[in-house]
């Protein structure tokens, strides 16, 4: 099982992000981490949350354009050079990262990196063979 990320289309105007967050808040969806990729007229909000299936359904019901994407979440040591080490593995395998972002875990000394690949399974295999722990959905929300 992979971590499910919600991707939401948002116009680049005041109030539009708020509208989406309000819908999620009122539905008791807890956001674990998020990032926004922006252009001049729109942005894509990428969200990892506790109940992605429910969040997706509720956003669609409110006519918000969104989709679910499987992303790769790995745990790395929260220490200098650790991210570089992980990324080196992808480079060696010729795997292109579409985008990535991070958050530190509440557990001490760990960070969770979120990666988006064209082919998540290949990337997963490359990392597991190097001893990385692939984070599953359950563990993120298990906190």
């Amino acid at each position: 099982m992979n971590v499910m990320q919600l991707s939401v289309f948002i116009e680049n105007h005041p109030g539009h992000l708020q509208n989406v967050l309000k819908i999620l808040g009122e539905a008791s969806i807890n956001i674990i981490t998020l990032t926004i990729a922006e252009t001049s007229d729109f942005g894509i909000l990428r969200v990892i949350c506790n109940k992605p299936d429910e969040a997706l359904a509720i956003l669609k019901k409110e006519h918000v354009i969104c989709s679910a994407t499987d992303v790769l979440a790995i745990e790395i040591e929260d220490k200098p050079g650790e991210l570089c080490r992980a990324v080196t593995i992808f480079a060696q395998q010729g795997l292109n990262i579409e985008y990535m972002y991070a958050f530190t875990e509440k557990r001490e000394g760990k960070a969770v990196m979120i990666f988006r690949f064209d082919d998540i399974e290949v990337a997963k295999e490359a990392l597991s063979s190097q001893g990385y722990r692939i984070v599953k959905k359950i563990e993120i929300i298990g906190e």
């Binding site: 991707s7 289309f9 252009t39 894509i44 354009i65 969104c66 989709s67 579409e98 988006r116």
Partner: peptide, 15 residues
């Protein structure tokens, strides 16, 4: 208006 089947989580696709 962006239709659902047109939307992607990747900026480059929308661009």
């Amino acid at each position: 208006e962006v239709a659902e089947d047109l939307f992607s989580d990747e900026l480059k696709v929308l661009d």
